[in-house]
Design a protein around this nucleic acid. Structure first.
Lengths: 110, 110
DNA sequence: TATTCTCATCTCGACTATCTAGAGGAGAGC
DNA sequence: GCTCTCCTCTAGATAGTCGAGATGAGAATA
């Protein structure tokens, strides 16, 4: 019943990841769970999408990864939002609002 | 200042086309203009995206094309929404609402 | 001790929508 | 005759995502 992370809102995975990390640093597996839970199962995150996204975001300087131990003493790579990432999230959120508003105008036209 | 039709709302071009044709049958060029105008310049439609979309939608049986003369007496391919297309538009619109609501929950999390 | 379960990271090949960058043609106006 | 606008359409490339895994390590169970 739950969808892939793409579908109609393709291109928003980066924004979801940035937003999730804005709350607190987290490892990949945890980010995937958090997105799935917060969206109430609407978005299911695929590792084949998630890890390329991490590379993309880290290369852009928006997140920074660091190896640590998870709460269960397992090794995990914790990602944290950088200052640039915070700005990027803000910009992307604004852009998202702009585009959904425009799409709403189209869908409501008579 | 205006974006491509993709970006954050990638995957919604089909829905925009279906919705535009739900108002009245129209030719490709006109659809592109209509989308650009209704979105107030937020979405700029690229022929390289639009015409593949027409093929896709017609092959799926959601729209049907027919050669006619435009108001300016030029030959143009007018597309009309089929009954199946109408159902598809409804489903896709509902899905869009579901996904944007889920994304809103993520963006508003604290 | 051996096995299994869950946590957790990561890769590879393929697909598909979209983009860039055009070509081509036909009616209208000068 | 020339140019402008309308209008359709194509080819090649790109990029994000998907499906289907492999890999490994700690915890729990037998």
């Amino acid at each position: 019943m739950s969808d892939k992370v793409s579908g109609l809102v393709q291109g928003t995975l980066d924004m979801m990841v940035l937003k999730t990390l804005a709350l607190e640093p987290m490892h990949g597996y945890g980010i995937a769970l958090r997105i799935e839970q917060t969206s109430r199962g609407v978005f299911r995150v695929n590792p084949g999408s998630l890890f390329p996204a991490f590379r993309r975001l880290e290369r852009a300087g928006w997140i920074k990864g660091e190896w640590r131990r998870s709460e269960n003493h397992r090794r995990a790579k914790y990602y944290a939002l950088t200052e640039r990432g915070r700005k990027r999230l803000k910009a992307e959120t604004a852009e998202w609002g702009r585009q959904t508003a425009a799409l709403a105008r189209i869908l409501e036209a008579t």
